[in-house]
């Protein structure tokens, strides 16, 4: 294992004390260290939001994109250089609201990357408006009479559109977080991980205690994550009777790069050798 300190960044952390994001950052560093990935081999891609600050606090390559637009560049980076490990961190608003279309089609495209959603059921950075995962009826700093919209069942959505790796973990359970992230990063294809992350400033409902009291690990049951119908049922489980954490669904699928022989077998696109004269033959079409 490499020393986890090599991922430490000098930046002052701007998250609130007690924020669930600290747990995610800590777990991410631990995961990279255990996987013996060097900082230059990893790109942390992020969107905009509190979650979208993650790349600042870890010493690796970083690509801070636009709000809702982290999925497209993450795919572009991986397609251009398959030797990089691409890990995407974005908020639940970023991933499921502004970026919903990219997520849907990113899953379909199945580029090998890990998408970690900081699932706090609120817009943190913009001070407490409802996110697509905020409970119906919950009062927020914008939905004063309570949220009138049903929350998106994110993992059910992901399974239904064909995601081959769908998991949930909890920022308050480091061991489980590291195990899940490791599995997600090792998975070949689009891996989506919702990380329950209490927002201490703006979500009075989904607190640390709320999650702590309800989560149970799937490992402790005889759950089979390869059965798609069962997985869809499991993905719908949420609330006072329990919130499952662990790998909800897993299926081996051909990745985007697997489908393109010269990318699969040849060098990374960034290492492609090319001379302008190589294109001369294409002019023959116009004679």
């Amino acid at each position: 294992m490499v020393d986890v300190k090599i991922y430490d960044s000098k930046d002052e952390i701007a998250w609130c004390p007690g924020c669930g994001n600290f747990g995610i950052l800590d777990g991410l560093k631990q995961t990279l260290a255990e996987m013996e990935l060097k900082p230059h081999e990893v790109v942390i891609v992020s969107g905009i939001g509190q979650a979208g600050k993650t790349h600042n606090y870890i010493n690796t390559n970083g690509y801070n994109g636009l709000h809702g637009r982290a999925v497209p560049p993450a795919q572009g980076i991986k397609i251009a250089n398959k030797d990089l490990k691409v890990i995407l961190h974005s908020g639940d608003g970023d991933s499921y609201a502004e970026g919903g279309n990219h997520l849907l089609h990113g899953i379909r495209r199945n580029v090998d990357l890990t998408h970690v959603v900081h699932f706090n059921q609120i817009y943190g950075l913009t001070k407490g408006q409802a996110s697509p995962t905020t409970a119906r009826g919950q009062k927020t700093n914008m939905q004063f009479d309570g949220n009138k919209t049903d929350p998106l069942q994110t993992l059910l959505f992901a399974i239904s559109v064909g995601c081959g790796f769908v998991a949930r973990t909890f920022s308050g359970d480091k061991e489980h977080l590291v195990k899940t992230l490791k599995e997600a990063i090792n998975y070949k294809g689009y891996a989506l991980v919702d990380v329950l992350q209490p927002c201490v400033a703006f979500n009075r409902v989904n607190t640390f205690k709320y999650y702590k009291d309800r989560v149970y690990t799937l490992d402790s049951t005889d759950y089979d994550p390869t059965n798609k119908v069962e997985a869809m049922k499991k993905a719908m489980e949420w609330g006072d009777d329990g919130i499952p954490i662990g790998v909800i669904y897993r299926e081996e699928k051909e990745t985007y790069i697997d489908k393109i022989s010269y990318l699969r077998e040849g060098p990374a696109l960034v290492d492609r050798m090319w001379n302008p004269e190589d294109a001369k033959k294409y002019m023959e079409d116009y004679r």
Binding site: Q75, G76, A80, L263, L269
Partner: peptide
Amino acid sequence: KIIVEQVEDEISAINMVLGASYAGV
């Protein structure tokens, strides 16, 4: 041996192109 990808919308197109260029192509 290049990649030509028809994507979900123009927002994706430009952002994917930016990502690929960042990586070096």
